[in-house]
Design a protein around this nucleic acid. Structure first.
Length: 563
RNA sequence: UGGGGCGUGGCCAAGCGGUAAGGCACGGGGUUUUGGUCCCCGGAUUCGGAGGUUCGAAUCCUCCCGCCCCAGCCA
């Protein structure tokens, strides 16, 4: 984390915290990251994690990890585990401060009783449907429930019996008595407790009434001594309600600050939509490398450093914004460029025979592992008479600006020799180019011509006899449109799923990769960054393409400036 | 038609009354045994719009326009 420490941007949140510290409202900074364990963390959560843990770090404070587990119907310990793993992977440590809203159920219950006694909460027998109708609309005030003015004694009795399990699900709720005419709907007697006879992943069957998020969240922050409760914009309207609860209880009152959640082009970041992608089989799971989940990005080969850097670069503000996914890609490239060892791999092989190279000779060429970091040393890569090069690196009829191999043209094979294409062998039936016949210049060993002769291109290659076969999974954006939600009438975001987001090829990779282990990242020269997938076995390597290298040639082609 | 927010180049985002940072993307050039990296250079006479205050406004005031969120016993 030290690498970007100095350039961390200050935000409006820093200004607020500075004021609070200066005014004496708080004398320390204590934040928290409060996920609900009902899904996997994604890059949007990373923004919140980096913000909250980052703030604590910058101000010498603490940041808790708290699971807001108030809904036993949707939550599962499996998610708790995945969330822990992801936060840790991102590089943050919550030490012994792992909390759960469910830790506070008893305290919350007592506080609810306190509000009932103060005449500020009541048990309501209205059905969910009735409560909705009584709430009014955006423009019309609601009306009070006929049960709103029950006596404190009756409320106490009823609430206690709710806890004991005397009533069926949905038959009663506990509501705060605030103002049914408030222009802020959150203040129209919000529900604090609902009856749910369901087993909770931590409290088991101890409870059959569960606090709503609105009732639990602010008080949980208060109990933990949080100073700054940072959340997303949609909770701005809830702040007056949280203030009301805290003031009615007379307990520690954190300051809530809202910021805009992250949105990214060419993907979706809503739990509901991500869940659909998984459940309807559009991807292979939460950790599919095409998913914007942290587990997906990890499997894709993204580094925690790159994700943190991204989160710091996008800034924190209050305006809804959609960040170009190109920035995320830039961040991984930048990180991997200086870290990933280079290798040679051919994704779409074209056979090349060096006619004047001795039949059984094999030379081991010295290759630099990382030109950006010479301390990574060198390695030997075998070279022989029959090679594979990339099909894209040969054009029988080269367009202008195509520098690579073509009939009669000379190019360099990286770290090896200059070769010249002398003949093209085609399949007599299809006309497809199946092999290139080339000659090499023995004087250019290593890649330099003693006579100063220049070539315009350097190609990567692999020795056919020595190369390893590997499965390589090439990924593209999951959606075809920058905004997946831009659809025709009657369609939904799945209509924009990119049918070519995954392409699997059988590649040939240099033999030094034989020992590569899952999670190891490499740059395949001239192609991109790749990571070994956990699907790999002892006799079969599987790679995921994290991101391509920037490719000005591809850009020219795409722009139609060349054919 | 209620309430709460937000509007600065293609995308983010600084700016807090003194005359538009930075990043990504894009375009141009240089270096280069990765068409990668790296290094230069280029772009808002203008800050949603219109008025006003001021010597001076993206920054203050007024009105208007646009976008987002809220009517779960989800979070």
């Amino acid at each position: 984390m030290a690498d970007s420490e100095s350039k961390k941007p200050r935000t409006f949140i820093h200004e607020i915290i500075d004021e609070d510290l200066k005014s004496g409202r708080f004398d320390r900074v204590h934040t928290r990251f409060p996920p609900e364990p009902n899904g996997y963390l994604h890059i949007g959560h990373a923004k919140a994690i980096v913000l909250n843990f980052g703030l604590a770090e910058e101000y010498g404070g603490k940041c808790n990890l708290r699971f807001d587990d108030t809904n036993p119907l949707t939550e599962d310990p499996h998610y708790v585990e995945s969330i822990r793993r992801d936060v840790r992977w991102l590089g943050y440590d919550w030490e012994d401060r792992e909390f759960y809203a469910s830790d506070y159920f008893e305290q919350l219950y007592e506080w609810a009783v306190q509000l009932i006694k103060a005449g500020k909460a009541y048990v309501d027998d209205l059905s969910a449907e009735e409560i909705r109708r009584y709430r009014g609309t955006l423009t019309e005030p609601g009306k009070e429930s006929p049960y709103r003015n029950r006596s404190v004694e009756e409320n106490l009795d009823l609430f206690e019996r709710m806890r004991k399990g005397e009533f069926p699900d949905g038959s009663k709720v506990l509501r705060a008595k605030i103002d049914m005419a408030s222009p802020n709907l959150n203040l129209r007697d919000p529900v604090m407790y609902r009856i749910i006879h369901a087993e909770h992943h931590r409290t088991g069957n101890k409870w059959c009434i569960y606090p709503t998020y609105d009732w639990a969240h602010g008080q949980s922050d208060s109990i933990e001594g949080i100073t700054h409760s940072i959340c997303t914009l949609e909770f701005e309207d809830h702040r007056p309600l949280y203030d009301w609860f805290l003031d009615a209880l007379g307990v520690h009152h954190p300051r809530q600050i809202e910021f805009a959640r992250l949105e990214l082009t060419y993907t979706v970041l809503s739990k509901r939509k991500l869940r659909r992608l998984v459940e309807e089989g559009y991807v292979r799971g939460w950790d599919d490398p095409r998913m914007p989940t942290l587990s997906g990005l990890r499997r894709r080969g993204y580094t925690p450093e790159a994700i943190r850097d991204f989160c710091e670069r996008i800034g924190v503000a209050k305006s809804n914004s959609v960040v170009d996914i190109a920035l995320l890609e830039h961040c991984v490239r930048q990180d991997l460029n200086k870290r990933a060892p280079r290798k040679m791999a051919v994704l779409r092989p074209l056979r090349v025979v060096i006619e004047n190279y001795p039949d059984d000779q094999v030379e081991y060429m010295d290759c630099i592992n990382n030109p950006e970091d010479l301390s990574q040393g060198t390695r030997k890569v075998p070279f022989s008479k029959v090679l594979y090069i990339e099909r894209d690196d040969f054009r029988e009829d080269p367009p202008k600006k195509f520098y690579r191999l073509a009939p009669g043209r000379e190019v360099r094979l990286r770290y090896a020799y200059f070769i010249k294409c002398v003949d093209v062998v085609k399949d007599p039936g299809t006309g497809e180019v199946v092999e290139l016949r080339c000659t090499y210049d023995p004087a250019t060993r290593g890649g330099d011509a003693p006579d100063g002769r220049k070539v315009k291109a350097t190609l990567h290659w692999v020795s056919a006899a020595h190369a390893l076969e590997a499965e390589v999974r090439l990924y593209d954006h999951l959606f075809t449109k920058p905004d997946p939600n831009e659809v025709e009438e009657g369609q939904d975001f799945t209509a924009n799923i990119n049918p070519d987001s995954l392409q699997v090829v059988t590649a040939y990779v240099e033999p030094s990769l034989a020992e590569a282990k899952p999670g190891e990242r490499f740059q395949f020269e001239r192609l991109g960054y790749f990571v070994v997938d956990p699907d790999s076995t002892d006799d079969k390597l599987v790679f995921n393409r994290t991101v391509t290298l920037k490719d000005t040639w591809a850009k020219l082609q795409k722009a139609g400036k060349v054919n």
